[in-house]
Structure formats: C-alpha cells, structure tokens
Design a protein around this nucleic acid. Sequence first.
DNA 1: ACAAAAGTGTTCCGCATACACCCATGC
DNA 2: GCATGGGTGTATGCGGAACACTTTTGT
Lengths: 238, 238
Amino acid sequence: MLESSLYPHVSVDCVVFGFTGERLNILLISRNGTSEDGFYSDMKLPGSVIYENEDLDDAAYRVLHELTGIKNIYLQQFHSFGSPSRTQNPRDKVWLENAIHIKIGRIVTVGYVALIKIGQKLQAFSDRYEAHWCDINDIGTLAFDHNIVVEKALHYVRLKSAEDPIGLYELLPKRFTEAESRILHEVIYGKKVDIRNFHKKFISLPYIVSLDEKQQNVAHRAARYYRFDKIIYNQIYR
Amino acid sequence: MLESSLYPHVSVDCVVFGFTGERLNILLISRNGTSEDGFYSDMKLPGSVIYENEDLDDAAYRVLHELTGIKNIYLQQFHSFGSPSRTQNPRDKVWLENAIHIKIGRIVTVGYVALIKIGQKLQAFSDRYEAHWCDINDIGTLAFDHNIVVEKALHYVRLKSAEDPIGLYELLPKRFTEAESRILHEVIYGKKVDIRNFHKKFISLPYIVSLDEKQQNVAHRAARYYRFDKIIYNQIYR
DNA sequence: ACAAAAGTGTTCCGCATACACCCATGC
DNA sequence: GCATGGGTGTATGCGGAACACTTTTGT
C-alpha cells in the first residue's frame, strides 16, 4: 500500500436532492464493512477521489454520471471540508484504505449539490451502486462528516434558489401541478406558504406555461399541469 | 526535491478586502522571479499550502495573522478552485517549486474572503511580506488563476452582504460617517444609491448609533460620526 | 351526499423609488 | 461670497401577507 499521509487527498462528495412530490430526498450509498466492533452497515454520500488531471467540477459530473446515467445535471459547488478529524473515525479510516488502496492522513472534500428528477431510469443505475433515495428528515448518522455536509448543502440550496429559482424546476417532473410546486417550496424553505398568495405569484411567472392536460383518476377535482420553460426563463434572467 | 505530483496539494488563498473611504482595495503580495523570458514582477493573493493536520479555516487564519497581525478577522470560505490548468503557466510552476520545495502536479486551492479595516498597524506587517493595497479596478493580471478567484470573491461578498450586512462594517473604521457607509455600498454593489433614501434607511437601523462627534477641519459642513453596535445587531439577527 | 383537493380576489401594510432645497464650514 | 458636501420629507407604486368560499371529481 502506498504511503502518502503527508499529502492531503482531494475528493468530491455530491449531495443529490430529489423530490417525491411530498418530501425532499437525497441519494445515499450503502456501505458495509467490519471494524473493531464487528460488522456494520451505514450510509455515505456518493463521491470519489479526484483523478490526476481532473477538474473538480469534472469529478463531480463523473460521479453523478456513473451513479445516475444522467448527463447535463444541475450541479453547483457549495463548500469544502478539510478538518483533519473528518477521517479520524477508525471505521472510516479502514474503509477508505480498502476503497482507494492508499494509506491516508486525511481527505479534503469539495461538496457539490445536484438537483435531479426522481425517475425510473435513474433507479437502474443506482441499484448497481447500492444507492437509495432517503427522506432528508430520516437519514440517521452518516459516514465521515457527511451529516454536516448535507446540512450545509441544504442551506446552500435555500439561499441559492432564493436568488435563482431555476434549480427548483430541476426537482420537479416535466409536467407538474401547482400544488407540487408549492409543496416543493414548503419543503425547501421549511415552512407553510399561503395557497392563494402562491397561486397569484405562480400564474404571474412568465416561464410557467399552462398545459391543456389535467390529472386523471384522482379522487378529487383534477389539477392542471404546467411546465417550466427554460427558454423564456433565460430570455428574462440571463 | 520530493516527487509528489501524483497527489494534489491543497492550499488556501485569501482575498482580503479593504475600503479606503472611496475605493475598494485588495491586499496583494509582490512576486519576483525569473522565467524563460527573464525577470518578471507581478502580484498574487496571499495564501499558503495547508499544514499537516491543519484545518482549512485555521490555515486561512494563519495566513492572515502572519500577514496583518490581526486576530478575529472576518473570514469566510467562498469557493474552491482545482483546475489542473491553474498551475500550468511555466512561470507559476517554477515559482511554486521554489517556494515549497516540492515538485507539484497541481494545487487545489480553497478561496477565503476577509474583510478588514485599512489601518497603520497592518501596514507594518504587510511591508515585511511585500504586501500592498491595490485598487480592485486596477489589479492587472495576477499569478495563477487569481483574477478569477478575485472575481468570484467579489461576487460572494455582494451576495453575502445582501443577506447579512455585518461584514460591511468590518470594512469601515470604528467611527464613520453616513457618506462613507453610502459610498461603501456603492462600490460593493457597483451602482449609485439615492442619498435621501439611503439616509432614511441608515438612521432607521437600530444598530447604527450616532456619536456626539463631528468631522474636524473639513472644507464644508462637518459630518456626524456613527458606530456599528455589534451587540444590538446580534440581539436582533442572531 | 360527502370527502378531498382545486381554484380564485380584495384589502392592507411596509419598503423601495423618485425627487430638490437649505445648511454649515473653510478658503 | 463661493464652493463643497451635509442634512432632510413627501408622494407613489409594487410586492408580500392575511384571509374563506365555491367548484370539481370519485366513492
């Protein structure tokens, strides 16, 4: 095994958000191993050490493409984490050395946020990597300092989407109802929004275009579908 | 010389902003060296490779303390830069190898913004390091990708101070006039602000406290001094 | 008929904007 | 007395916030 503890290694970790229509989820990778206390099984963020001659953004794209099969993912760097203690948990240390075959002092990781639509095609890829969508409110204790990374990522998404809401439409399906959009806002900002005020704002947005389609077979009045028009959006805000 | 090009190195670079009362300045380090084309002299951001077992934030604090002598600096991480091409300029490559005595493939750098008051005590320290305050609009071509780093830092300061203006008061002297505060806003946001509207907002802020002091020996009506009260600010916003 | 969610308008308040004249001081 | 910047109020418009009833559809 190569000795390289003198030099920090650099990785990227991706906090991949998805929206079920009701809850905010993130994509986590199952991790199984043995430590002093025997077998364990927990979860971690998808990530990778960066390759030689690979840009940080490229590394994050690579991780996400391998994981989901999707290209053109909405992806933003949000913060880097480099505390020497972040890889000091013995369980994490052993796991790392097995995973990348290098004895490591610590890893500096660059955090990326990705926003994607939860879909079936994705699932196929994710299964190979033992990736699972997990409710953001129910992710327990993650490997390394990944709980902190997720916390910071969520904060970033809130801040970012306040100034530029385009990211939120990456989380919604191509056709979506006003209610879905409203609930997404509620889970992102963590508070109820007034239905009528939201409606007024929603229909006033020029880049939200109404479709001549409605929900089918719902046990109540069917809601209209809308779509997000990126071209109109870019004309206005770019 | 140690060979370690396989492993990326990690550094911090600090974009230190100061405000002269009229212009936004940043602190740059003179760099002299020889390359294929002979002598050169240019400027770079203050920064350092991180030490073994040193947290990123600690490294940035260390750089700033060595440079300015100041503790308790307002400091925020804003972005990381890791393009392999960022250290490919031959001039930069040679300089790096002389500076840290390691043959280097590339360096991933974590960018920090610092906001400080331009003062005399600082100058003493800065001289030792050949540090100079430079007008932000007149910094020419910097070493590495530091022009991009500065650009991103400025963008970050704008965004950040919109949601939390506390940082702006780090740039003003302890006693300042309303005009100084107004001009600071203008240089940060890059546009004129209306004097009377600014005034109304300014005097309504509970954490701006009026002092019983005025300017002396100015060739016009003397302006009142104010100070920023951090305690009141924290009571309200924390 | 009833349950469940869709769809819709008005009022009020606070904040941003636009805009012009007199005041104090040093030279 | 003049040049320079300090100091101040009013009117308007926009966007956010509060708030409740009718409509559609499936069971």
